[in-house]
Computed example of a mutant assay.
Amino acid sequence: MSYAAVGHITIDEMNEVRIGGSVVYGSLFATGLGMRASIVSRVGRDMPEEFLAKLEEEGVDTSRVKRSCERTTRFSISKSSYPLSLSSRCDNISVDDLSSLNADIIHLGPVANEINREVALESIKISRIVLLDLQGILRVFDNGIKLSRGYLDEFLDLEVVVHLNDLEAIAATGKDVRGALKELSRHFPIVAITLGRQGALFSFPEGILYAEAPEVDAKDEVGAGDVFSAALGIALFRGLELEDLAKFSVASATASTLHEGPCKIDENLIAELEGSVNVSWVEG
């Protein structure tokens, strides 16, 4: 089983400077579950070599990471996990970057509008399951980082599974979370909206499912949504029943908050947390 994450690797400035981005959190998560994982990305000449070397040591294939610009996409991030500002941005991912890529799951994890519809369409052609994180599509960079509908219309009605958080859903649709879920479900086969420590809502053709997250003493919530997306794709590929899929995705995201920074997550910890995830059908 193979997983490929597509999007910008980032340099995140917090209390310390560390590697970040959906592609990093997702690929490390997949590798931790024993999957063959790779990253398709573009970074700058300022990306520390030891950051990429560490990913390789953890079993992530970085052969498709190109140094194609002066400065890597770099964010300032607050303790609340939300980026405060964009200091620099690398160039866009192209369809050519996907040439000869072979992956069962492709996780499109843009963080700064670096993925377009053509890349998404190519991903659909070459993979069995494609997930699209909408965070990097809905962000507007103007005196900080704001949320709006952004480039969402460019991606509507693609056969992809989409994930976004509650604030992004409200900004994208102008509706409350439940209304946003219903609107987006008219354009995508599966939609998941994460609700922070409250869990997540899922829209499937069968109905709407709510998964309540277990209470934990979180250490670091950065990247939890990225892990959630990766887990959702893996659960779909494994063919899990919908309630089990919801438990696995929410438990995986919760488990990620118990660690500092991007890392592998023990599947035994995920299984333990799954037992505390309460699921219920809201509609269906």
Results as ranks from 00 to 15, higher is better:
V191K: 13
A271H: 11
P214D: 12
V95N: 02
Q135S: 09
R18P: 00
R71F: 13
S203N: 14
E206W: 09
Q198W: 04
L101V: 13
S252N: 03
I265A: 06
G26I: 02
T173S: 12
V40D: 07
S81Q: 04
I39A: 05
A251P: 15
G233R: 02
E16F: 06
S276A: 11
H107P: 00
G207S: 05
E114C: 08
K146F: 04
R71P: 00
R67G: 02
R36S: 11
V161E: 04
S252C: 01
V279Q: 03
H8D: 05
G20A: 05
V60D: 00
Y25S: 05
P189Q: 09
K175L: 15
G21D: 07
S99E: 10
L181R: 10
K146P: 00
Y25D: 04
P214C: 10
D46W: 05
I77R: 08
C263Y: 03
L131V: 01
T257A: 06
L132D: 11
F29P: 08
L181H: 08
E13V: 15
S76M: 07
G239W: 14
E122K: 15
V140M: 12
H259S: 10
G275K: 15
A172P: 05
S276L: 13
I265E: 08
A180V: 09
T173E: 12
P189K: 13
L240Q: 04
A230G: 06
I265F: 09
S185K: 15
G34P: 09
Y25E: 07
K247T: 07
A224T: 12
E183V: 08
I126E: 02
